[in-house]
Simulated assay, not measured.
Amino acid sequence: MTAFNNSELSPLSSLEQWEDDLLIRYPEPEHKAKEAYRNYDSPERDTVREFYRLNHTYQTYDFVRAKEREFLSFDKKELPVWGAMEFLNTLVDDSDPDTDLDQLQHLLQTAEAIRADGHPDWFVLTGFLHDMGKVLCLFGEPQWAVVGDTFPVGCKHSDKIVYPEFFVNNPDSHDERYNTKYGVYDPNCGLRNVHMSWGHDEYLYNITKDYLPEPALYMIRYHSFYAQHREEAYDHLMDDHDRAMFNWVRKFNPYDLYSKSPKPPVVSELKPYYEDLIAKYLPATIRL
């Protein structure tokens, strides 16, 4: 595997910078049309550009398969879910000027917005868990292998993916095994047969896949797959079951993007409810 220097490991000032960029690309519907925001040449976006240059260069089919082998053995840590959330909190970056909330508070805000709208408790739990896979950063993973818009590897990269021009540096773009419309896949083979770029979505899906309802698993696994659930660029790989399940992904996405608030939730008041909810669906400890 390639050895990366510090600037290649952490091109963003914080992981939240990627999420802030999503709000620019996909603002709330009542706000300005996204086309008015898509200025990718402004200087303040240089770190985001660099993040995606690295992401699109190194997220190859072989890289993803290697990360699956490395991390899906789950031999790094074993913790209660709440302990994993507190572990995740060590990712808080004091240099981030846009939020004083730690990761746990952001996840509680997402989950509480879902609960306030009367959704099933497993949906609420999904909101609470959905970013837990970011603990990958605490195991030394580069930011661009933890967050970022996800996409299939092993087939042609869509021009609907953000900054598609950077895929010219990806070796798979020049490999006839991987650079055709279907690549290593069959038409409409179903996303269960497709390898996605590596990150917190795929990691958490594999942690929770034996415990949560299928709609929850689709939300977790594909909530960063904007090229499909916003741009519909990979319909040729999806089957009818995927299309039905993506209604849940689209239902979840606004809670992920638009539930942030500067007012922090009172963690001590909410903790008993979420510990009971965790116990209902998940084992006492999880392996990371």
Rank of each mutant, 00 (worst) to 15 (best):
F246P: 00
E231L: 10
L212V: 06
S73H: 13
K156M: 10
T57C: 07
F225Y: 11
E214K: 09
Y226I: 02
P120S: 09
P43H: 08
P142K: 04
E28M: 11
P262N: 06
E176T: 07
F246L: 03
F252G: 05
M1E: 03
L15V: 07
Y273P: 04
K260T: 09
D121C: 11
S259H: 00
D131W: 05
A33I: 14
V168N: 11
R287D: 10
H31D: 09
Y234M: 04
Y258I: 08
S224C: 05
L101D: 02
L136C: 07
L277C: 02
G118R: 00
T2S: 02
S173V: 00
V81R: 00
Q59P: 09
E176F: 07
P80H: 15
Q103H: 15
D240E: 14
L72Q: 05
F4Y: 12
D172Q: 04
D172A: 04
S7H: 15
K251R: 15
Y163I: 09
F74L: 12
D256Y: 02
V64C: 12
Y222T: 02
R243D: 05
F71Q: 04
I220Q: 02
G183M: 03
D41E: 10
N170L: 04
L91N: 00
R287A: 14
D131N: 11
E70Q: 08
G118I: 08
H241P: 02
L101E: 04
D186L: 09
L282I: 05
P283A: 14
I220R: 08
L282W: 07
T126Q: 09
S42A: 11
Y258G: 01
D20H: 08
D210R: 15
K181I: 11
W82P: 04
K251S: 11
P265V: 12
L72R: 13
L23N: 02
A216N: 09
K160G: 05
A84S: 07
E50W: 01
F151Y: 15
A66I: 02
G154Q: 08
P142G: 08
L136V: 03
A66Q: 12
W248V: 00
F151H: 10
R230F: 08
R38N: 13
Y234K: 08
E112G: 06
D94G: 14
K209V: 05
E35M: 10
G199V: 07
P283S: 14
D21R: 05
K263I: 15
L138P: 06
A84T: 03
E68N: 15
T126D: 03
P29W: 12
E231M: 14
R192N: 13
R65I: 04
N247R: 13
D210P: 04
L91D: 00
F252E: 07
P187H: 04
V266Q: 09
L288K: 01
D75L: 10
S13R: 11
